[in-house]
């Protein structure tokens, strides 16, 4: 049985060796950034109506525990009711219809200053005069330096 004991000691040592060489006490960022339009200036709010030809400032509040990196805004039609938002309120959707000339807005922006932990997204968008009116979808997303991402989306309408 002495053999057995010896072996167990050797194996235990291998495990120990592994355990000790492990964590080099790196501060790991395990937190996602946050994103919200649920404040007074947040825009758009759920079910809001946007008029063609007008210019709006899209505003959302983003935060992170370490450093924010980039964000994006996505406006696309929801004529087929394929998606619904996560704002809680249920908007009255119009009839399902086929898109002819829908608005597509896909842009991303970088936060170039270092170590920004709180930031307000402000993006000016002019709604063209010639696009289809109807149900639209507004989706924000934000990343932090580590590569974590958060998203939020809002149901809106574009009207004449």
């Amino acid at each position: 049985m002495s053999y057995l004991k010896k072996t167990l000691i050797i194996l235990a040592n291998i495990f120990m060796f592994g355990a000790c060489t492990g964590d080099n006490d790196l501060e790991k960022d395990l937190e996602k950034p946050t994103i919200s339009v649920n404040y007074t200036d947040g825009f758009p709010q759920g079910c809001s109506e946007l008029q063609r030809g007008n210019t709006y400032t899209f505003r959302a509040q983003v935060t992170d525990n370490v450093a924010l990196a980039a964000y994006s805004l996505n406006l696309h039609h929801n004529f087929d009711h394929h998606t619904h938002d996560d704002q809680g309120a249920v908007c009255d959707l119009e009839q399902i219809k086929t898109a002819v000339n829908p608005l597509v807005y896909l842009e991303n922006f970088q936060i170039n200053e270092e170590d920004v932990k709180v930031y307000e997204i402000q993006i000016e968008v002019t709604i063209p005069d010639d696009i289809d009116t109807g149900d639209y979808h507004c989706a924000y997303s934000v990343t932090d330096q580590t590569g974590w991402q958060s998203r939020t989306s809002i149901d809106i309408k574009i009207v004449e």
């Binding site: 990196a69 980039a70 964000y71 994006s72 805004l73 996505n74 896909l106 842009e107 991303n108 970088q110 989706a139 997303s141 990343t143 932090d144 330096q145 580590t146 590569g147 974590w148 991402q149």
Partner: peptide
């Protein structure tokens, strides 16, 4: 496959 902080269009 590393998730970067950057976007292409609106996708990470």
């Amino acid at each position: 496959l590393n998730p970067t902080p950057y976007y292409e269009g609106v996708l990470q």
